[in-house]
Design a protein around this nucleic acid. Structure first.
Ligand SMILES: [Zn+2]
Ligand SMILES: [Zn+2]
Length: 730
DNA sequence: AGCACGCCGACT
DNA sequence: GTCGGCGTGCTC
C-alpha cells in the first residue's frame, strides 16, 4: 500500500461483473471494507471498498474522487468480508450486488452503522377507557387502540409497519396519555442460565458430547434424525455449551420453519438475547439486530438463508436445520446456497457446524462418505415408536373415486375405527389441476405460462401456480359458450370433499398454503390435531415437515406417480425425501404406523428400494447412480438462463455463450435448449448447461470470457443469469 | 440495472 | 411544431 492516498477498488451496486476504481479526493481514506458514497455515471451510489491499489488500469483522467467515506472502520468482520468476495467469484455474480443482497437495506442506503433506539407504545388505563368512549369519526384512533388491546397493550415497531403508520401518527394519542412511548432496551442480555433441559437418551447424549468436543474449532457434523427423534433438544443442549463459553450461535431454518413457536422454544430455554430475522421486521429492527450481533450483544440469531450474512463478534456454532431444504438456495439474483456458504463460514471462523436432516441431501451424504462431515445418527423415534410399515398399493385396473381406491378407504377405516388419525397426502393444492369444457374440449390455460390453470372451487377462481395469475372461474366456455365445464384431475380441495363424503361422521381438515393463509391458522390446526379433535388430515408437503402428531397411525399417499418420472436428475432424491418425510408422520408409541402408497408403478425401483431399505441406503444407491451418470455431487454444474419475449433471442445469446465456452478442455456444454417450462410469466426462457468434472473448472472457464459475454450484442436483448450448482432446471 | 442521448411517428 | 416510443452506449 502506498504511503499517500491509495486508489480505491470499489464494489458498486450494478449488474456489471467488475469493480470500479476511485480516487480518495478530499475524503478521509476509507479502510478496506468501509462504505463510500461514489459518483457513478449520473447517479450517486453507496459502494464498499474492496481493495487499496497503487495503480489503476483505467486512465487517470477517468478516475473520479469518492464523495464521502461513510464508515471509519471496516463494516464487516474480516472473515465475512472475505467470504462475500469469495462468493462473488464462485457464483460469478457482480460483487456490488453481492454486498447489496447481503447487507441490511439501511446500510445499502448509506445509513451510519450505529445502533439507534427503537420505541414501542404501551396502552394506558386511560387509553383503554378512551377506547370504549371513542367517537364514530375517530377511525384511526380506534384502529390504533384496538390493535393495542389485541396485542397485550403493546404496539411494537413491526406492528406500526403492519398498521401502515409512522411513529408521529401516534403522537396525538401519547399527548392524551392513552399511550406511553417507551424505549426498547438495546444493551446486552448475556447468557446466564437455562431452564431445565430435557433428559437425553443415549443417542442424543452421544451426539451432544461428540459435537461438544469441537466447540472452538471447525468441524462439520451431519445430524441425521427423523422428526420426533429429539433433534431440536440436541441443538439446544449443544447451543447451551456454546453460550456457556460466551460465544454466539447462528441458527438457519427453512423458509416455512421460521415460526414464532420455533423462537419461543429457544426463548423458553435460554435467558439471553435471541433475535429472529423474519420478513415482518422494519429496516431499523433488521439493522439493529445486525449491529447487535456484530457487537456481541445478541447471543443467538435465528433466520432463513439470508441470516447467514449476519456478522458476529465471536461465532461459536452454526446450525442448519433441515439442510436438504431447497429454500437454502436463492433462486434469483445472487444465487447462493446458504448451506454451502455456511460450511465455509464455519471453517473460516473456526466454529463447528451442524447440518440437521432426516433426509440429507446427496451433497451432504457425499461429504460424509468423503470424511468431510461426521455422521451422527438419532435412530430412536420419540417414546420408542417403531418405524412404520409400508404398503405399496397397486391401483392398476382398480376403480378410483376422486383418486381414492376402495382398498385405501378400507385401510383408513380400520385406523379411524380404532380412534386413530389418518393423513392423506397429495402434493397438489386447489380443487383440480385443470378445467375442461364438455362441449369442445377447451382447457383453461394460463396466458403467460405453458401450464393449465388450477381450479380453486372455494374461491371460485382459476389460479396459475407458476406466475400467480388469478381469474374468476368462467361460467361458460369462452370458446363455444357451453355452460358445462368439468374439473380434471385431483387437488387437495377435491380430496377433502371426497373424504368428507366417504367418512361423513369424521372430522376432516385440509392443510395447505390456501387453508393456512391466516396467520394463526397453522398453529390452530396443529393444536386441534394434537387434541384429537381431527380424524383425517388432508394436505400437501406442508404436513410432511416438522410436526409430529402422536395419534396419527396411517399415512395415505394418493398420487406419487407424477414424481416417479421426471427429466430432472434430482427428482429421485426429492421424491425419496418427500416420501420418507410423509412416511415419518405415521406411528406412535404403542403401535407401528402404516403407510399406504397408491401407484400405477409398483415395480418402480424407487418405491421398491425406499421401503425394502431405509433412506440411508437408498441415498447411497442414488449417489452411485449420480456417479455413473457423471452428475453432481461428482461433477459441478453451471446453468446459463436467458429470457425474453420470444424464444429466438435467448437461444441466439446462449448459442454465442456456448461458442465462447466451447474451446475449454474439461468443460462440457449442453444446449442451448428451451427451458423445461419454456413459457413462464409471459417470458420465453432458454438455458445452456455447463458441466465439469473438476470443481472450480467451471469458474476458471467462464471467468475469462464473462466480459465478452456481457458485451455480446445479443446479451442486450435478453435477461440472463448464471446459476452455479443449480437446484431446479426451471 | 439505471440513465442519458438520439432519431422517427401522431398529437395539442 | 413537440411529446414520447425504445434502440444503443456508458458507468471508474
Ligand atoms: Zn367449449
Ligand atoms: Zn401463469
Amino acid at each position: 500500500m502506498p504511503p499517500s492516498s491509495p486508489i480505491l477498488k470499489v464494489a458498486v451496486p450494478t449488474p456489471l461483473r467488475r469493480s470500479f476504481d476511485y480516487l480518495v479526493g478530499q475524503s478521509i481514506i476509507p479502510a478496506i471494507g468501509a462504505r463510500v458514497r461514489v459518483p457513478f455515471g449520473r447517479q450517486q451510489l453507496v459502494g464498499v471498498v474492496i481493495d487499496h491499489i497503487a495503480e489503476s488500469t483505467t486512465p487517470s483522467n477517468k478516475l473520479k474522487p469518492i464523495l464521502e467515506t461513510i464508515d471509519d472502520q471496516p463494516l464487516l468482520p474480516a472473515h465475512l468480508f472475505k467470504l462475500l468476495l469469495w462468493a462473488s467469484d464462485y457464483y460469478l455474480h457482480p460483487v456490488g450486488d453481492v454486498f447489496n443482497t447481503c447487507l441490511p437495506g439501511l446500510l445499502n442506503k448509506g445509513e451510519p452503522a450505529i445502533l439507534e433506539p427503537e420505541y414501542y407504545w404501551q396502552l394506558t388505563e386511560e387509553g383503554e377507557q378512551a377506547f370504549s368512549n371513542l367517537g364514530k369519526n375517530a377511525v384511526k384512533q380506534h384502529k390504533i387502540l384496538n390493535w393495542a388491546l389485541q396485542h397485550q397493550g403493546v404496539i411494537s415497531p413491526e406492528h406500526l409497519n403492519q398498521l401502515e403508520l409512522i411513529p408521529s401518527e401516534l403522537k396525538p394519542l401519547t399527548e392524551k396519555g392513552w399511550l406511553i412511548k417507551k424505549q426498547i432496551e438495546l444493551s446486552a442480555k448475556p447468557y446466564t442460565q437455562s431452564n431445565q433441559p430435557l433428559a437425553l437418551n443415549p443417542e442424543q447424549h452421544d451426539a451432544v458430547s461428540a459435537m461438544q468436543q469441537s466447540i472452538g474449532q471447525f468441524h462439520g457434523f451431519l445430524l441425521d434424525g427423523v422428526t420426533g427423534s429429539g433433534k431440536t433438544e440436541v441443538y439446544l443442549q449443544l447451543i447451551e455449551q456454546v453460550l456457556i463459553k460466551k460465544q454466539q450461535v447462528l441458527v438457519l431454518v427453512p423458509e416455512i420453519g421460521l415460526t414464532p413457536q420455533t423462537v419461543q422454544r429457544f426463548q423458553r430455554r435460554f435467558n439471553c438475547d435471541i433475535a429472529m430475522l423474519h420478513s415482518g421486521l422494519t429496516d431499523r429492527q433488521r439493522l439493529n439486530i445486525w449491529l447487535k450481533a456484530k457487537q456481541g450483544l445478541t447471543s443467538i440469531v435465528i433466520g432463513t438463508r439470508s441470516a447467514l450474512f449476519t456478522p458476529f463478534s465471536d461465532l461459536g456454532l452454526i446450525v442448519v436445520d433441515e439442510e436438504h431444504d431447497v429454500s437454502y438456495k436463492q433462486q434469483d439474483g445472487f444465487r447462493y446456497s446458504a448451506r454451502d456458504l455456511a460450511i465455509l463460514r464455519a471453517r473460516d471462523e473456526q466454529a463447528p457446524i451442524v447440518l440437521g436432516s432426516a433426509t440429507p441431501s446427496m451433497e451432504s451424504v457425499h461429504n460424509v462418505n468423503q470424511g468431510k462431515l461426521t455422521h451422527l445418527t438419532l435412530r430412536k423415534r420419540a417414546a420408542d415408536a417403531k418405524p412404520p410399515h409400508i404398503k405399496v398399493l397397486d391401483i392398476r385396473q382398480r376403480h378410483l373415486e376422486n383418486g381414492l381406491s376402495q382398498a385405501l378407504l378400507d385401510n383408513m377405516k380400520r385406523h379411524l375405527e380404532n380412534g386413530n388419525q389418518c393423513l392423506v397426502f397429495l402434493n397438489r393444492r386447489g380443487f383440480a389441476p385443470s378445467l375442461m369444457c364438455h362441449g369442445c374440449g377447451w382447457i383453461a390455460d394460463c396466458q403467460r405460462c405453458d401450464k393449465h390453470m388450477t381450479l380453486h372451487l372455494q374461491q371460485k377462481r382459476l389460479h396459475c401456480h407458476h406466475c400467480d395469475k388469478q381469474v374468476f372461474m368462467p361460467k361458460k366456455c369462452p370458446e363455444c359458450g357451453e355452460p358445462e365445464l368439468f374439473p380434471i384431475g385431483l387437488g387437495t380441495e377435491r380430496l377433502e370433499q371426497a373424504l368428507i363424503k366417504a367418512f361423513p361422521n369424521k372430522t376432516v381438515v385440509r392443510i395447505d398454503r390456501d387453508s393456512t393463509r391466516r396467520k394463526q391458522a397453522m398453529q390452530d390446526y396443529v393444536t386441534a390435531i394434537k387434541n384429537n379433535e381431527v380424524d383425517i388430515l388432508v394436505g400437501t408437503q406442508m404436513l410432511a415437515k416438522g410436526h409430529h402428531f402422536p395419534n396419527l397411525t396411517m399415512v395415505a399417499v394418493v398420487d406419487i406417480d407424477g414424481c416417479l418420472f421426471s427429466a430432472d436428475f434430482r427428482a429421485t432424491e426429492r421424491t425419496a425425501q418427500l416420501l420418507t418425510q410423509v412416511a415419518g408422520r405415521a406411528g406412535r408409541a404403542d403401535k407401528p404406523g402404516e403407510v399406504v402408497i397408491q401407484t400405477h408403478h409398483p415395480e418402480h425401483p424407487l418405491l421398491l428400494n425406499l421401503f425394502t431399505q431405509d433412506y440411508q441406503s437408498l441415498s447411497q444407491q442414488i449417489l452411485s447412480e449420480r456417479q455413473a451418470g457423471q452428475l453432481p455431487p461428482y461433477t459441478s454444474m453451471a446453468l446459463f438462463r436467458a429470457e425474453a419475449s420470444t424464444l429466438q433471442y435467448p437461444m441466439e445469446f446462449l448459442n454465442e455463450v456456448s461458442k465462447q465456452l466451447g474451446q475449454v478442455p474439461g468443460l462440457d456444454c449442453f444446449g442451448p435448449f428451451p427451458a423445461p417450462m419454456a413459457k413462464r410469466a409471459g417470458k420465453m426462457r432458454a438455458q445452456l448447461l455447463c458441466q465439469a468434472e473438476q470443481r472450480g473448472l467451471i469458474q476458471r472457464a467462464i471467468k475469462p470470457v464473462i466480459s465478452i459475454i456481457e458485451q455480446l450484442p445479443s446479451a442486450r436483448k435478453v435477461r440472463w443469469s448464471i446459476d452455479i450448482d443449480p437446484q431446479d432446471p426451471f
